[in-house]
C-alpha cells in the first residue's frame, strides 16, 4: 500500500534570463495517514514554496517539476486546474503563515466557512451552516453561532487562525499542510494552536505536513522530520532518530542552537552557525552547506551530493559515512 502523500524529486524554478532561481531542489518525502511530518529549516530555505508546490498554488511564472507527486495514489502532476480544485480543500488543505490577511475582509466568517463546504458537498445552506458551527466548536471557538456573523477584522489573530484551521478541516481532508501556523501569533496562543492542530490531526486520522523553524515544536508533535537547507532536504528520519542521532552537520549545528534542559551546562554558549546561506541561483555544485560546514573538504565539491539512505525513511545528504557522522554528532552533543 502506498503512502498518503508521495513526493519524489520535487523542484521549483523561477526562470530568469540572468540565471534560473531554484529555491526548491529535488525534494522527496512521504507522509502516511495519522502521521505528522515536520519540515524544519532556516528562513528562506524553501519550506513555503514546497508546500505551495504540493497544493498547486505556486505563482504562474514558477515552474514545478517532480518525478512523482501522488496523493492517495492519485497523480497530481498532470491535473488540470479544475481537477486540482476538486482536490484542494477536500482531499488536502492548507493553513497559512499569515492569519491576519488570509481571510477575505468582505465576507463573514460563516460565509467563508460554509462556501467551502458547499463547494465540495452540494448541500443546502442550513446544512453547511450547521457544519460551520460544528467546526468552529471543534477548533475551540465559543459562541460559534454568533461568530458566523462576524467579519475577519473583528477577530484577533489567534481566532482568525482557528477559523483558518476550521476552514481547512471542514471537508475532512486526508492531508493538511500547515505552514508555520503560529509564527504570527503571541507566544501564549502559539502553544494552544499547536496543541489544537496536533489533537485534531489525531482525531481525524489525517496526515499532516507541519512547517516550522522551531525545533521545540518538532520534538512535541512530529512523527517524522525533514530538515531543509538551501532548497534541499539534508536529513530525514523519525523524530527520535534525528534528535538522538543527527547525521548531517547542519542538523547537528541546528540542534546545538537550541537549549536542551539538562544538556546545556550553565555558562556554556549556545551554538550558532557562522557563515551565510548560498544564493539559490543556477547550479551550486556539490554540498550546499560546505561553506559553513566545520568538516568540509575536497570531496564536498563539485559533484551534487545525493541522499544516502541508511534505512528506508532514514537518510542524509553528505559524503561522509553514517558511522563517522553519528560519532561527530554525539561528540558535539556530549
Amino acid at each position: 500500500m502506498t503512502a498518503l502523500l508521495e513526493v519524489d524529486g520535487l523542484s521549483v524554478t523561477f526562470p530568469a534570463t540572468a540565471g534560473d532561481f531554484r529555491p526548491v531542489r529535488d525534494v522527496s518525502f512521504s507522509v502516511d495517514r495519522g502521521e505528522t511530518l515536520c519540515i524544519v529549516g532556516e528562513s528562506g530555505c524553501g519550506k513555503s514554496l514546497t508546500a505551495l508546490a504540493l497544493m498547486g498554488l505556486l505563482p504562474k511564472w514558477a515552474r514545478r517539476d517532480a518525478r512523482r507527486l501522488e496523493l492517495q495514489g492519485r497523480d497530481l502532476v498532470g491535473l488540470t486546474e479544475r481537477q486540482l480544485a476538486d482536490i484542494r480543500g477536500r482531499r488536502m488543505s492548507m493553513v497559512f503563515q499569515e492569519p491576519m490577511t488570509s481571510l477575505n475582509p468582505a465576507y463573514t466568517v460563516g460565509e467563508q466557512l460554509s462556501e467551502t463546504y458547499r463547494r465540495h458537498y452540494l448541500s443546502r445552506r442550513g446544512v453547511a451552516r450547521d457544519r460551520a458551527i460544528y467546526l468552529l466548536e471543534t477548533v475551540g471557538i465559543t459562541a460559534a453561532a454568533s461568530r458566523l456573523r462576524q467579519y475577519p477584522h473583528q477577530l484577533s489573530g489567534g481566532l482568525r487562525q482557528r477559523v483558518m484551521i476550521a476552514m481547512a478541516l471542514i471537508c475532512e481532508p486526508n492531508l493538511i499542510i500547515a505552514d508555520e501556523p503560529t509564527t504570527a501569533l503571541d507566544v501564549t496562543i502559539q502553544a494552544q494552536i499547536l496543541h489544537l492542530l496536533s489533537a485534531l490531526q489525531k482525531r481525524f486520522g489525517m496526515g499532516m505536513v507541519l512547517i516550522t523553524h522551531d525545533l521545540g515544536i518538532v520534538a512535541r508533535v512530529a512523527t517524522r522530520v525533514a530538515v531543509m537547507y538551501a532548497g534541499q532536504i539534508v536529513e530525514t528520519g523519525t523524530v527520535d532518530e534525528v534528535f538522538a542521532n543527527p547525521l548531517h552537520p547542519y542538523t547537528q549545528a541546528l540542534l546545538r542552537c537550541i537549549p536542551v534542559p539538562g544538556r546545556v551546562k550553565r555558562g556554556e554558549h549556545l551554538g550558532s552557525i557562522p557563515g551565510a546561506v548560498p544564493t539559490l541561483m543556477g547550479d551550486l555544485g556539490g554540498c550546499h552547506f560546505r561553506n559553513r560546514c566545520a568538516y568540509a573538504h575536497a570531496a564536498c565539491a563539485p559533484d551534487p551530493i545525493l541522499m544516502n539512505e541508511v534505512t528506508p525513511g532514514r537518510g542524509y545528504r553528505c559524503v561522509v559515512p553514517a558511522a563517522i557522522c553519528a560519532a561527530r554528532g554525539h561528540g558535539a552533543a556530549a
Binding site: 477575505n104 468582505a106 462556501e115
Partner: peptide
C-alpha cells in the same frame, strides 16, 4: 493572501474572481 486561501479551498476560478476578487 485571501485569494490564495480561496484557491486553496478549491473554489472554482470564476468564484475566486467574481466573488472574492472583484468585490474587493
Amino acid at each position: 493572501d485571501y485569494i490564495r486561501t480561496a484557491r486553496a479551498k478549491g473554489l472554482l476560478p470564476r468564484t475566486v474572481l467574481f466573488k472574492h476578487a472583484l468585490r474587493n
